[in-house]
Design a protein around this nucleic acid. Structure first.
Lengths: 239, 239
DNA sequence: CAGCGAAAAAATATCGAGATTTTGTGTTGA
DNA sequence: TCAACACAAAATCTCGATATTTTTTCGCTG
């Protein structure tokens, strides 16, 4: 079932309990914006939507609280977590701190199997990018999955379970911001070239170069989101 | 109630729900070793010990899972998380990564109020150390609280909510290891002098020196735990 | 019109019963 | 002796009823 520091076992396995299944569905729905920031999550209503009992839904919501996708207030229920530029900036900079360290460790310790996994993930991501360009239905969803897999493959050889665990949480958070902001304003940018440069530097075992590229890659999203109109964040104000 | 990234609101307020209360008690009991690593946590039994219903206890256990103090397996209940030298090393190194960054940010941004808070926390900690030396009853508990408060005060001016959140989790983990290991083998070491040097460098706004001292301070615990007999970790093997 | 209080409606948190799953024990056969 | 199976006991998970809390609505007063 649930071990907090194992990198997302919930995606790897079929859910063993209804709590897990509801948690996964809710998480997906929040990240994808179906439940917008600040929305009240009423157990009495959602239990029907997700087809579980009230207690089971509470458990799922608690798990989402600890993912920081939901905030709860004792006896006053749950809300979708707000968004803000400051939060996104914090997430982004903390991601840079953790992911560059993770990449440094991976480059120092990774073997050929790790390299093969990275190259494969990059290839799959490239294919998804092509489908994005062709406006295939479901292409965005596919790209998100493969982008995530790519970033995970990049640091898969990092031995620090904790760094990977925290990275996973932050990645999830940034995915939510990305989905929300892209819906409003696609960002012109050659992401493929950025990924290519990252893979090249990594395979060359040039930690300094690779971490520099990764840092810029991650921070570029922050730059783009900063261009969003300010009213974009107003609806996510902390209650 | 519960907002995952606010630094431990559960300690700041009286619990608003039975879930919170049970969570806090269980967490305390696990950190203090009353429930040793690997122990099966049976809902049917614990509900009586903690005087709550089964569903409520499940919720508390879920919160502990996300603290990585408990592991759960779908339909097979919960166990106290195992301990290992490798895990403690990971925790320690990740703490160094996060806390030095947090201290860097705090030094860059902290004002006089932050300094005053730090000096106060150091003073209180020093008093607790005196009581430790005098073998006062409850002195260990007091010292743990004040040590925690000291480390939190040190990085209180770090603006990154996420770094503070992760630091909090890791601090908690390291507290559990420290309590377990000190019970076995008190470590000779002038902790007071280490804290003093840390405060001095921080108040002098010497980020390089302060982070170097902090890094050594944290890593010194790792060195000490490495001297533990190997059978110490055997009982915490991952099931 | 604004503020207050009371009552009604809606929602939350908790508990324990019941269905389901897991674990432990005993028996049998090779 | 060991493995496989059956069955009983224990434990887990889920649901919905109920007590409690919060929110909304309504009426009254200044």
């Amino acid at each position: 079932m649930i071990d907090a520091t194992v990198s997302d076992p919930l995606e790897a396995d079929e859910p063993k309990t209804l709590v897990e299944a509801a948690y996964k569905r809710l998480r997906r729905d929040i990240i994808e914006g179906m439940h917008p920031p600040g929305e009240k999550l009423r157990v009495e209503h959602l239990k029907e939507q997700y087809d579980v009992g009230a207690g089971t839904l509470r458990e799922a919501l608690l798990l989402l609280v600890t993912d920081a996708l939901v905030v709860g207030q004792g006896q006053r229920g749950f809300r979708v977590a707000p968004i803000s530029l400051a939060d996104f900036e914090d997430i982004t900079r903390t991601r840079v701190l953790l992911e560059t360290e993770a990449l440094r460790q991976a480059i120092a310790r990774g073997n050929e199997e790790w390299e093969a996994g990275l190259v494969g993930a990059f290839h799959r991501l490239s294919r998804a990018e092509q489908k994005l360009a062709e406006h295939d239905p479901g292409a965005t969803e596919d790209w998100e999955k493969r982008n995530r897999a790519f970033h995970e493959a990049l640091i898969a050889a990092c031995p620090s379970r904790w760094i990977r665990h925290f990275q996973h949480i932050l990645y999830q958070q940034s995915e939510r911001y990305r989905r929300i902001s892209l819906f409003r304003q696609p960002i012109p940018r050659d992401i493929h070239a950025e990924h290519q440069a990252l893979v090249d530097a990594t395979l060359a075992r040039d930690a300094t170069r690779a971490t520099s590229i990764l840092s810029e890659h991650i921070l570029r999203t922050l730059d783009a989101v900063k261009q969003m109109p300010q009213d974009f964040f107003a609806r996510g104000k902390r209650p």
